[in-house]
Design a protein around this nucleic acid. Structure first.
Lengths: 149, 149
DNA sequence: TTTTATGCAAAAGCTTTGCACGCCC
DNA sequence: GGGCGTGCAAAGCTTTTGCATAAAA
C-alpha cells in the first residue's frame, strides 16, 4: 500500500506547487470525504488533529487546488460547496430536498443525457460531479413531513 | 389579457395568505424573471419603482412563498439561489462553468433520465428546475481562457 | 536567500432575526 | 380591533483579504 502523503507530495511537486503539511492534510481529507465535505467540514476534520490550521488557509488552498485542476467544487444546494479530487472515480449525487439525504450514483447513468446535450447544444456537461435534486424514495412516499403530526 | 396582479391576488388569498403590495410585486418580478433572478436582483428590480421595500422583506417573503409551494428555489452554483414560480413552463438550465452563460433547455430532454432514476432508486427528480454544469460550446472550443493572452 | 504559504484578524457579502409600527382582514 | 407583515437595524455566517511571520525551495 502506498503512503498517500507520498502521492499527494508528487501531485503538488509535479505542478511546481509548494508542498506544505497543510496542503497534504487538506488533500487527504478531501480524498477521504469522497466529494461530500464542505470547506468548513474539511477544516474541522483537520483541526481535530492539528488545531493550528486556520480556516482562511483552507479557503485559500481550496482555491489554489481548484485552479490547478486537482480539486473540483460542487454546489449541492444547501449553501456551501463540496470538494473532491478530480480523477477519483466519477460519480454523482441525488440530493433529497426534504431530508437532505445524498445518494451516490455511478457515472454510466448520465451518459445518454450527456451525449444528447452535446449533440444538440455542443454543451460539455461536467463529468466530475453532478447534483440532481428531488425527493428520495422514503420522502416521496410521505408527501409532506407535517412537523406537527 | 388578464391583469397579473388579480391572478397573484387569488393565488395568495386561496391559500389564506395575506395579500400585500410587496408580495404582489415580488410574485410579478419572479414571474418575469423566468427563474433567472436571485433574491438580490428581485429586490433591485422592485426597488427601482418602489424604493421603500426592504431586502429583509424579500428574503422573508421568498421563504413564505417557497413553503407555500408557490415558488421554487434553485442553486445555480455561483453563490445565491434563483427563484421561479412553480407551474410555469418546466425548463432547466445548462450553466457554463467558464463564462457563466445560462442556456435554457426544455423538460423533455430530461424525461429519460428521470424515468431511469425513478426505476432504479425510487428517486423523484424535481421537475421544476434542474441545473447542469459544464462548458458551453464556445468555451469548450478554447480549453483555457488564459486572461493574459 | 528569495519566494511563497500560513496564521491572525479584520472586513466584506449575503441572509436571518428582534422589535415596534402599520396595514390587511 | 386583532393579528400578521413590513421597515429598520443589528447580528450571524461564510468567505475573502491585508499584513507580518514562518516555512519551502
Amino acid at each position: 500500500m502506498v503512503d498517500p502523503f507520498v502521492m499527494y507530495r508528487e501531485v503538488l511537486a509535479l505542478r511546481g506547487m509548494r508542498v506544505t503539511p497543510q496542503r497534504l492534510m487538506i488533500l487527504q481529507v478531501i480524498d477521504e470525504g469522497h466529494g461530500h465535505l464542505t470547506a468548513d467540514q474539511i477544516g474541522d476534520r483537520i483541526r481535530a488533529k492539528f488545531p493550528a490550521i486556520h480556516q482562511g488557509t483552507i479557503y485559500r488552498t481550496l482555491e489554489v487546488l481548484r485552479e490547478a485542476g486537482l480539486v473540483s467544487e460542487t454546489h449541492l444546494g444547501d449553501r456551501s460547496a463540496v470538494y473532491e479530487l478530480v480523477g477519483s472515480h466519477p460519480h454523482h449525487h441525488l440530493v433529497c430536498d426534504n431530508c437532505g439525504q445524498v445518494i451516490e450514483i455511478g457515472d454510466a447513468m448520465l451518459a445518454p443525457l450527456r451525449a444528447a446535450l452535446f449533440n444538440q447544444f455542443g454543451f460539455r456537461a461536467r463529468t466530475e460531479h453532478f447534483a440532481i435534486f428531488g425527493l428520495c424514495a422514503d420522502c416521496a412516499r410521505q408527501p409532506e413531513p407535517t412537523p406537527g403530526a
